[in-house]
């Protein structure tokens, strides 16, 4: 405890609230409030109704939701596979090679997403790999972007893993493949699910690369939200944004349930 006097503590908390609430809580509340309203010119939103949600859960919005869910699921599963594979293979390498591999796989974090979008667009707009105009170019870009995060969190988990487990398994006669499947992967499961959740959330909210790439028949939620706000339909946009947040949170929650089960089994 850093501050001992009661009064001072209350003062500190008051400052904290004054900073924290408007900056972090308010934006989310505003979006939530606006999603139920038609006008907002006073302090509080007005014209309460649920029409925004009716619009946000049917037609193109519903389709965008499916698009986003499919894209995020596919991208995060692919990213998790590649990232985990890379992290496991990297962990077995000598330090010099491992460093190189780490550096390669974090590079997509440093490169602006817009540039990733541009590069994918440049590379896959011509044969032999003509993906432009298909959903696969969006999924591909998302996978590239989130693989870095999957790799990072899984390789961090691998370094934290006590080598005593795999050595115990080996001394009991388990071959490397069996050690991987029966000991290392189950022990990594909590981190794998966490990585999957992270990838999913990132992909759900991805806008920068998507804006460069999306074909008309594969419009994810963020693009739809942008389109709505761009034409001035802020309230509908908010409702779609709330749907986006809710879907993300729901999946994250489900994933964290799996994780708790995995770590307390």
């Amino acid at each position: 405890m850093l501050v001992h006097s009661r009064g001072a503590r209350w003062a500190v908390w008051a400052v904290f609230l004054v900073l924290f609430v408007p900056l972090f809580a308010l934006p989310l509340l505003v979006v939530l409030g606006a999603s139920f309203a038609t006008h907002w010119s006073g302090v509080l939103p007005s014209g309460p109704n649920t029409a925004n949600y009716r619009a946000a859960t049917r037609g193109e919005a519903l389709q965008a939701l499916t698009t986003s869910l499919l894209t995020a699921t596919t991208a995060s599963l692919l990213a998790l596979t590649v990232g985990t594979w890379a992290a496991l293979a990297g962990a077995a390498l000598k330090k010099r090679y491992r460093r190189l591999m780490d550096a390669l796989f974090v590079l997509p974090v440093a490169v602006p997403s817009v540039v990733v979008g541009l590069s994918v667009l440049v590379a896959f707009s011509k044969p032999p790999m003509l993906l432009n105009g298909t959903r696969w170019i969006v999924i591909l870009a998302h996978t590239v972007l989130v693989t870095a995060f999957a790799h990072q969190s899984v390789s961090a988990a691998i370094t934290r893993l006590d080598p005593a487990y795999e050595q115990a398994a080996a001394s009991l006669g388990a071959r490397p493949a069996r050690v991987l499947l029966r000991v290392r992967l189950p022990l990594l499961l909590p981190s794998l699910t966490a990585a999957a959740g992270l990838c999913f959330a990132l992909s759900m909210g991805e806008l920068s690369a998507t804006m460069m790439l999306y074909p008309p028949d594969w419009t994810p939620l963020p693009v739809l939200i942008y389109a709505a706000t761009d034409r001035g339909a802020l309230f509908t946009g908010s409702a779609v944004a709330v749907v986006l947040m809710a879907a993300t949170l729901l999946v994250l929650f489900a994933v964290s349930r799996v994780r708790t089960r995995a770590s307390y089994r």
Binding site: A164, Y165, Q167, A174, R175, V183, A262
Partner: peptide, 17 residues
């Protein structure tokens, strides 16, 4: 894994799962 040796270490290394 081909040596057939029993081993017990300080941290036990029991498989938690």
């Amino acid at each position: 894994y081909q040596r057939g040796i029993g081993m017990v270490v300080q941290s036990y290394a029991l498989f938690p799962h």
